[in-house]
Design a protein around this nucleic acid. Structure first.
Ligand code: MN
Ligand code: MN
Ligand code: MN
Ligand code: MN
Lengths: 153, 153
DNA sequence: CATGAAACATAGCCTTGGCAATACATGATG
DNA sequence: CATCATGTATTGCCAAGGCTATGTTTCATG
């Protein structure tokens, strides 16, 4: 549905308060489209840093999914020019992939540190941050950082 | 993949730090499965409260999706015994639906109020809360509430 | 250097959540 | 009361993201 369609659909009806949410729901759907890609590049970057390489089976084990699921996703990430693969040699990040991994991890770390600072336990903070990170705008991230600076250890 | 499979796949390999994330990713996928249902029942509840009824077209307009998309989702929500429909009369929540709407809205409101209190602007807070709410555990929600009480207006 | 285990690839299936197009039902209104 | 705008239902399409089952390739190692 285009914005024009939305507008014309709205003609004649007063904007109900609930209607203000449209943009929020749209941003949410956009986040859903990209969050898996972010998790993948971040994880691949972690694995390369920790183990020297990122294999499909390692990625699958970390994510808790099967290897064919990973294989299909890696194809998508390859289409998006975020990763390259050398069979039996591992998965590698392109420059774009490294950039996305870096910004994603930074955001992820801030979110998790923020939750910890707020008093959330390590397991819940880890679990919640994994989902929350993808829905945090720059403005909110800045607020989190500000809170962290204002409450040093 | 069963947990047993995961375990046996891990045999012989030292648990890398990245592996601790498995549970977080699993919880994330679970949240993705239910977040749309939560948004629907909450929105239906809002519309009934504000306009006296919740029509497919209203729901579609608020969500920014098309009417067939809403129709299909309502069928799912009906299967899950969360809503009932009377054609040309609107959508109604079952008792289960009302319960889910109520807990979802409470959580949603706390998340949004928390972001506002943290200094996030109204638009960003509204947009981010729409996504974040589905990934907030009870523990984190409690921490948010605690922060709100500790920082009254 | 043969061979078997592990890694990888591929095919086929499923559900979810989108879309457009179209058909049908209802109710407001002239 | 006939008509038509609106609301609803249905169909067919698509992409994403899961799965199992099965084939193929590599590589360690006996
Ligand atoms: Mn992450
Ligand atoms: Mn994540
Ligand atoms: Mn909500
Ligand atoms: Mn939401």
């Amino acid at each position: 549905m285009t914005n024009k369609d939305v507008d014309s659909a709205r003609r004649g009806k007063p904007a109900t308060p609930a209607e203000f949410q449209v943009e929020a729901f749209q941003k949410c759907r956009e986040a859903r489209r990209t969050e898996l890609m972010e998790d993948y590049v971040e994880l691949i970057d972690d694995l390369i840093a920790q183990a020297g390489e990122a294999r499909q089976t390692d990625i699958a084990r970390c994510l808790g999914v099967t290897q064919p699921t990973v294989a299909k996703m890696l194809k998508r990430l390859g289409d998006e020019r975020l990763v390259t693969q050398r069979p039996y040699r591992g998965v590698f990040l392109t420059e774009d992939g490294k950039r996305l991994a870096s910004t994603s991890r930074r955001r992820h770390e801030i979110v998790e540190a923020f939750l910890r600072k707020l008093g959330v336990g390590p397991e819940a903070a880890r679990n919640d941050a994994e989902g929350i990170e993808h829905h945090v705008s720059v403005e909110t991230l800045t607020a989190f950082e500000h809170f962290l600076r204002k409450n040093p250890d």
